[in-house]
Write a protein that binds this DNA or RNA. Structure first.
Lengths: 146, 146
DNA sequence: CAATATAGGCAGGTAACCTGCACATGTCAA
DNA sequence: TTGACATGTGCAGGTTACCTGCCTATATTG
């Protein structure tokens, strides 16, 4: 098996990095006592408002269909992290809202995510990354959506 | 629906960016006449050697189980992009090798990927990214694997 | 008050992985 | 040279994270 030189694309580097970071969130949440929170549930905690958010809004923010988001919310409801209450302003709608235990998850996640991002940013800096990474990435994504 | 400020994590920026780039490869390959190449097939073209590569080696490079890689290879074989020949140096093994049409895919993919990466690099630079991105990412991943 | 739009749910399907197991071939120590 | 174990591959079946199609209930609007 000759070790032929293969192309390592920037795309695959980005993919592997983000995959590792996501896995790390899941691991750290499990270590903090939330072992039932696979990556599929992250979009909810990222996109929900304090006062509660409609399913369709959650779905749009997470770029999922409302059916998929419905499943995810149902799972989190079974696990006790969110609850669904009627939306007083619209009889068709219901608000998905964090329970106390859901708020605890978000609190933990915010802390652990900060730690993970710090770790990677230190590594990237040590290996020569200059300046900010967040704003270029954000601006480029915005441009894509136009 | 009050537009509450939510956290946009660096992790989600990386995820969305890499997802868009992967989709773009698939689209461009489809436009080039290879409409039957979903993202799941990319790891093969990225990891295969000219002289052919064993299934287990492909699987290890792509970080998949050999069973999963076996399925992917079987699909690509049905579509005529790879063939399996006995490995002369080991009777248990077979070499997965690109067919002429598979080599055409790789040629096209290399060109299109370069174009995609250029496009994003230009955007990132315009939005303030300094210097190289590839080597910090690569070095950080290497550190993770230790 | 019809016509249409919107919120959500139910049923069923698919892609891309996984684990468990079987089997053939190879290697190596006694 | 022969077990004992390792390695390469394949088959069967399962899981996760999505999807589309279709339905009902409620709201909005001409």
């Amino acid at each position: 098996m000759t070790q032929q030189q293969r192309i390592v694309t920037l795309i695959s580097l980005l993919r592997r990095t983000s995959q590792l970071m996501v896995d790390e969130i899941t691991d750290r949440l499990a270590a903090a006592g939330f072992a039932d929170l696979p990556p599929a549930y992250h979009p909810i905690f990222e996109n929900i408002d304090r006062a509660g958010t409609r399913l369709t809004v959650l779905a749009a923010r997470a770029r999922l269909t409302h059916q998929s988001m419905g499943e995810v919310v149902a799972e989190l409801e079974r696990r006790g992290y969110v609850e669904r209450v009627p939306d007083p302003s619209d009889g068709r709608a219901r608000l998905v809202r964090l329970t106390p235990s859901g708020r605890q998850v978000v609190k933990t996640a915010v802390r652990e995510i900060a730690a993970i991002e710090d770790k990677w940013l230190r590594r990237w800096r040590k290996a020569g990354l200059k300046g900010d990474l967040r704003s270029p990435l954000e601006a480029a994504l915005l441009e894509e959506e136009t």
